[in-house]
Every structure is written in C-alpha cells, then in structure tokens.
Amino acid sequence: MRGVYMKNEPLLEVNGLKTYITLENKKQAKAVDGVDFVIHKGETTALVGESGSGKSMTSMSIMRLIPEPSGKIVEGSIKLEGKELLKLSEKQMEKVRGNEIGMIFQDPHSSLNPVFTIGMQIAEPLRKHKKMKKKEAYKKAVELLVMAGLPNADQIVKMYPHQLSGGMVQRVVIAIAMSCDPKLIIADEPTTALDVTIQSQILGLMTELKDQTNSAVLMITHDIGVVSEAADKVMVMYGGQIVEKASVKELFRNPKHPYTIGLLASVPRIEVEQERLESIQGTVPPSHAFPKGCRFAPRCKHAIEACTKTVPELIESSNDHEVRCILYRGEETRPCDNHEQRNTN
C-alpha cells in the first residue's frame, strides 16, 4: 500500500464529453455523445457495451489519442486529479500518457513493436518519464516483469515479442502500463484476445497490482463475465451514451435499462436450462444515424411513443444507480418481469 487514501476521492472526472468523427462522406459520427462519469481512487470501473457503442472512443479521448484530423473532441471536460487534460498542450499531454495514465490494449501481440526487445520497450517510458539511465531502466524492467508474474525476467528482457505467448506478452504490456506508477490504468478489452484459462489470471494480476499501487482501473469490455470478476462499478454504454451506471452488485441484482436487462439475459447461465440463448434483436445503430429519441428505442420491447421523441436524461432512480430510460421517470417500477424468470420460460 502506498500511504493512506480516501476511497471516495475522485481521480478522473469526465463531464459532457463529446467526440465526433467526420466520415469520408462528410457525415458526422457522434462516437461519444455526452458522457459523464467519475472514477475514484482504488476502484475498478467497467465500461460495457457492444462494438460500436463508443467505449473505446471514450478511452482514446481520455488519452487524447483520437485519430486526427477526422476525429475530434468537440466539447466536454476530462479532469485527472483536477487537472484539465483537454487544455494541455501536446507536449504536456505526452507527460500524462504512460506516466499518469497507463494503457493496456486488446491484442497484446500487436501492441508491441515487433523489431525491438521487450526490455527496450519497457525501458522506453521509464527513460522518458522517470529520466532513468539505460542500465537503471533495464534493471527496473526486470523488476516489473517479475512483478507481472514472469519468473525468468532477466532472459525475457532480451527477447522479442514474437518469442512469447499471448498471455506472457499481455503481462509484458501490463508491466509497461504499470512502469511509471500511473494513477489510472485504462484497459481496453485486456483479455479478449486471450485463452479463457489465461483470462482470469490476467484479471487477477491486474486487480492485485491495482491494490498494491492504489491506482484506479477503467476496464473496457463487452464481456459481462469480466465485469463480474474484476469490477467494482459498471457503466453500460449504448450509442455513444451511458445508459446505466451502478455498482456491480446492484447492476446484476437489479438491472433497470431494457438494454442492460437484454445484455444480462444474453449471457449463458450454467444453472438455467435454456432452449435458446436470449439475444437483443437488431444491431447498434451507426453513430452517424442515431434515431431521434432514445437510441435504444428501435430495438426495445418496451418502447412507447414518447421514447421516439426526445433523448431521455440520465436519472438517478435509486441510490447510486442511474439509468437513461423514460420508464423510470418518477416511479420505481420495472419495465418488464424479472429477467431471471423469463429465462426459465
């Protein structure tokens, strides 16, 4: 543990974030369209959603690595410990990336440069941010690899990425992300490309390292299983907006948004006998052609006429549980039966 900390101290505050992408046909895709959330120190927050829901764009916006000039953060605010990231110059932002915010990517093999040694790639941020000498940085690289659970680290530093397995490389990527003691780690689908057996090891490692260093994790995933295993809080994203926010326990026990309910129902459950797996009809609308009202309305079983008029606000339906659905306005009813009962049909 690195000193005493207040669990509720906010680390990252994102407010009204809008990131638009200009497509080749000049249309604007609202990849992230008004996202607000807070990540507290020591927490793991999961950002869940289908592909195309804008979750990766949210993380790239925090890193300010949106591909320019087609992509642009149009408005909003991203504060890391009160420091406004969107106002930093590119040079200042370089000091945040890899130093205050570490990042872990989906496919470990393609997130390392194939022509440089592992040691060089871990040493690189240390030399830049911590001004370490070459020798010192390599020594630290070995320590980091050991910490990431790679025993023969002094040999691995001399190796190239293609000589290691996927799970080993992801440990290397985690070591790189952790190298400069970041306050926040953004993990973009960190286990998607890995074998199931390796997945929970990697998640376990991340949680362990997070607790050791008192950092916070923003875990981006489409895998509900990963959420239940590793996260404290969940945000469900749909069509560039957050549609539901709650603690993991609360969300699994009491999902509110019809989309979340559908998402949970589409997870196979071993204890329930099912003929067919539930699925949500239709696909995520493309972000340049969102429907006028609620973005989920065209796929929603409970949609009423009012849903197609205006985009609903995110409302706090109960303690620390927010949902963007018109059906919860001022009432405490669920739009449908308990989804677990439905599963047994």
């Binding site: 370089e94 000091k95 990336r97 990042m103 990517f105 997130s111 022509v115 690189e124 941010h129």
Partner: peptide, 23 residues
Amino acid sequence: DFIRAVKAKGMGNRSVLYKHTLR
C-alpha cells in the same frame, strides 16, 4: 496498433516517427 501503444506510453513525435515507424 503498436504505434498507438507507443503513443500511449507518452513517446514524442520524433521517437514515434523515426524510431518506431521508420524502423
């Protein structure tokens, strides 16, 4: 992807371009 990862490590433009990309 790895160039994005190099940028995410906070490497400057020169390093990204002449070291990682060019190589």
